[in-house]
């Protein structure tokens, strides 16, 4: 039976993990390779690396980091952050990334999704959407790490992205991100029922119950960052909890 995926996310800046980490057993908690390797050993199903300072000059640094990660871990991983062209993606895939995620650049030029799916296959194109709920009760797309609002409804963009060739949707609720109040069930559920591809829920996971809630019906995978980095929830404990609740996990 296909299992639900638990995905730790690592934010990378200048080749180092940012956001504090709380791993006493790591020699260097800032080294993404060490942290990634620990998560893989603990049973993470996939990893996501988001380069938050991605610029063209730094992309080569990122590629060499990706290559080190690929040589160390044996589970799939996605790399995102500032990707805006087929060449960007080729560099990262050649370095050993399995998937890439696109966000702002794809919104500004949606053909990018078609180009990437055409060149490398839908299986490696993850469309990341940052969403925020407005007073009208609808969820809207935000860009540039949540700093720039748009008037595009999140569900419309998700459906368009999939029709252009996105192979997965990584949906982050800006309202919930960092809140530890639970995932955005309503929009995750809506999108999941509208698109044929997996939806990864992100933002708000603070307790094992939150993961259970979002994975029970709606999401195919759940992503979180700091709760794993700070060891508030360990991956084996989370999976034990989900297993007892009849959620299929590896």
């Amino acid at each position: 039976m296909l299992t639900k995926r638990i995905i730790p996310c690592l934010d990378i800046k200048d080749g180092r993990t940012v956001k504090g980490t709380n791993f006493v057993n790591l020699r260097d908690a800032g080294d993404p390779v060490e942290l990634a390797s620990l998560y893989a050993t603990e049973g993470a199903d996939e990893l996501v690396f988001l380069d938050i300072t991605a610029t063209n000059e730094k992309r080569k640094t990122l590629a060499s980091l990706v290559n080190r990660i690929a040589h160390k871990i044996n589970i799939p991983f996605t790399v995102g952050g500032g990707i805006s062209s087929v060449d960007d993606v080729r560099l990262l895939l050649d370095a050993g990334a399995d998937k890439i995620s696109v966000n702002t650049a794809a919104f500004k030029r949606p053909e990018l999704i078609n180009e990437l799916a055409g060149s490398f296959g839908s299986q490696c194109v993850v469309l990341a959407i940052d969403a925020k709920k407005h007073d009208d009760g609808e969820w809207y797309v935000y860009l540039n790490g949540g700093r720039v609002a748009t008037d595009k409804k999140c569900i419309d963009w998700a459906v368009e992205g999939v029709s252009r060739g996105a192979g997965e949707i990584l949906l982050t609720s800006m309202d919930h991100d960092g809140s530890k109040n639970g995932f955005a069930i309503d929009i995750t559920s809506q999108i999941s029922s509208l698109v044929s591809v997996p939806v990864i829920a992100s933002g708000g996971g603070g307790t094992p119950e939150h993961f259970f809630e979002v994975l029970q019906h709606h999401a195919d995978a759940a992503l979180a960052a700091s709760i794993f980095h700070f060891k508030e929830i360990s991956i084996p404990d989370l999976k034990d909890f989900l297993r007892k609740k009849q959620i299929p996990v590896r």
């Binding site: 039976m1 296909l2 299992t3 639900k4 995926r5 199903d45 299986q123 192979g167 997965e168 044929s196 591809v197 997996p198 195919d220 995978a221 590896r250």
Partner: peptide
């Protein structure tokens, strides 16, 4: 998908 009632493609870990 109308017969299996699951998403396609299958993406993830299966036994």
């Amino acid at each position: 998908v109308n017969k299996i009632h699951l998403k396609s493609p299958q993406i993830g870990w299966n036994n």
